[in-house]
Design a protein around this nucleic acid. Structure first.
Lengths: 197, 197
DNA sequence: GTCTATACGGCGATAGAC
DNA sequence: GTCTATCGCCGTATAGAC
């Protein structure tokens, strides 16, 4: 595989991730993606055998982006700061969420209607996010309910993103982000209180 | 319009609401809905001019179902009990949520990708739910932040439903329902504490 | 490797018999 | 009012020229 080939493939995947977010999986045609990537329609099949494979590549791109984010967060601060930074990143994307919802959540929601492997691929990415958050809560001293808290965190965000989108109001995400941040802070006291007690 | 006509119309709408939830809007064909309703395919157009009008009728059915639920809840107990009963109802549907997500949330999420009026129709139903919850919080003495709390409640549920669906695990909804219920209880103390203080 | 032209199937919607 | 047959479009996927 040559250099130019990889370049077009990357452009297709990047365009797919963006357009699938904006339009949804079922409404998006290969022509839409090809046009956004600046690639002739029929040529898509040189890089991807089916539309589903292109969707899967877009999911993988989300997975890599998530890994890049969590790796960057792992480099600085403590678990509480890392979780709050995660939320802050979500709040920063509130304008996008108001227009199209959470880039990955709306994708997962749509893929969940399917029986093929694509729904499980999306589930795996979501699981990675939850696991990372779970690890942070465990570091904060929440040994027994770390996973429950991680799910509560991600659920709060996903629900806030859905309402932000449905109500077309970025302020919803901002307000809920404040709530979630305060909630994380209240959990940060957990170990400190036990230690000082 | 005769009796038989209304009957078929109702069957079509009921089938549409169910199949749209299970398969999603874009993946569902008129043939799927007609088959589920026991009505010949082409005959659908006697009752609905377009597919979108049938989807809109399904949204209206959700709206009426919601109104029936809130009306029933209004008849008993105080605002705290009503909100907890609402959550309990969601938890009871956790098996369905694990398979297909929240019946209305997944619909709203998909319709949000569209420009036509259907997305606003879904938004209106979501707004009704939020407004009802807001009223309950206001009755509980949360005058200033009732709407913020109502959005937090609905968002928590919608996010929990999304993760329940993605992870294919009804226990997620059960656990998060417990959390939300405890949270409502903690808010119920609000006015009592202020009064007793 | 890249792109054009086209085959093929499916779905929304219509026409018209009964 | 009810149902069948069918049209026309569009989207995926393929064949094959360059």
């Amino acid at each position: 595989m040559g250099r130019a080939a990889s370049d077009k493939r990357e452009r297709l995947v990047a365009a797919a991730a963006r357009v699938l977010h904006e339009q949804g999986v079922e409404k998006t045609t290969l022509a839409d993606i090809a046009k956004a990537a600046g690639v002739p329609v029929g040529n898509v099949y040189y890089y991807f055998k089916t539309k589903d494979q292109l969707v899967e590549a877009a999911i993988d791109a989300h997975a890599e982006g998530l890994r890049g984010l969590t790796t960057a967060l792992d480099a600085h601060g403590g678990p509480t700061e890392r979780l709050k930074a995660l939320v802050a990143g979500w709040v920063d994307q509130r304008e996008l969420a108001a227009r199209f919802g959470c880039p990955f959540g709306s994708l997962a929601s749509e893929l969940d209607k399917r029986d093929d492997g694509l729904d499980r691929a999306a589930a795996h990415v979501m699981e990675e996010l939850i696991s990372w958050a779970e690890k942070q809560f465990r570091e904060m001293g929440h040994d027994t309910d770390a996973r429950e808290l991680a799910i509560a965190l991600v659920a709060s965000y996903q629900g806030a993103a859905l309402l932000t989108n449905t109500l077309r109001d970025p302020d919803v995400m901002w307000t809920q982000g404040q709530r979630i941040t305060a909630w994380i802070d209240s959990l940060a006291d957990h170990r400190a209180e036990e230690v000082s007690a």
